[in-house]
Design a protein around this nucleic acid. Structure first.
Lengths: 123, 123
DNA sequence: CCTTTGACTTACCAAAAGTAAGTAATAAAC
DNA sequence: GTTTATTACTTACTTTTGGTAAGTCAAAGG
């Protein structure tokens, strides 16, 4: 059996698990998707203000990756100063129920997890 | 409306979203949970071999965090050389369907995402 | 002129993760 | 009886990723 498993998990090149983890395993993508899912459409600075703790630099690279993956649509209105709007694509929206599931799980389990952490600290 | 949203997302201190993202937004936790969910119980080196691309150091810190959160149970058999087994707790298992949902989503959507990435590159 | 505005860059610094080697205790191998 | 192998880790060092703060661009407002 071990050999089957080993084979299964080690095909890392185009492994979808690794791919999905590399994508949502970064610090900000998931939060951007959740917020855009919640608000609809936002301009760059609106999003930035809502996230607060993200740097502008990281927000731009996050949005670029999400745009490249077709999860977020970027619309530039060529004005001065520029106006850029971001919204989820259909593909991006298809992720929302899954991410919402994780958020719900977190809301339910965080109190107990917090207790576990404190016990672990004490030991 | 913006002000409500701002309030909602900026309560970062004990925000469950931020907490869950900080926990599963690291590079290896999710994969460890998925593999343990698939295999049942594994020793440190078995897990390490299955993951291949993780360093021993990172596997150690990942397992410590999961143990501290009560998602994984660590059992030490005091032999020489030592034997340490890891398995999911009930809390850890409760995450499996959610993570499996993400894996399924990845399997379904990765081909199209790949296409999007190539188009983005070309443009 | 000088400042403001919005969506970013860029240069620089800190934190996280990867690499490679080391450690401990003992049993089996030579 | 000294070397070697084994397991689950540490530790020191390097690279990669992320954070901070300042700068850019082009036009509009004072």
């Amino acid at each position: 059996m071990t050999e089957n498993i080993l084979k299964k998990y080690s095909e890392t090149v185009d492994c979808p698990v690794r791919n999905v983890l590399d994508r949502f395993g970064d610090k900000w993508s998931t939060l951007v998707i959740l917020i855009l899912g919640d608000t609809g459409t936002l301009r760059f600075n609106e999003l930035h203000r809502l996230m607060e703790t993200v740097s502008e630099k990281m927000l731009t690279v996050t949005l670029k990756k999400l745009d490249a993956d077709g999860l977020v649509k970027r619309t530039l209105y060529p004005q001065v100063p520029p106006r850029v709007e971001y919204e989820l694509t259909e593909r991006g929206r298809s992720l929302l129920p899954l991410l919402q599931g994780l958020v719900d799980w977190a809301n339910e389990n965080m109190p107990e997890i917090q207790k576990s952490r404190e016990q672990y600290q004490a030991a």
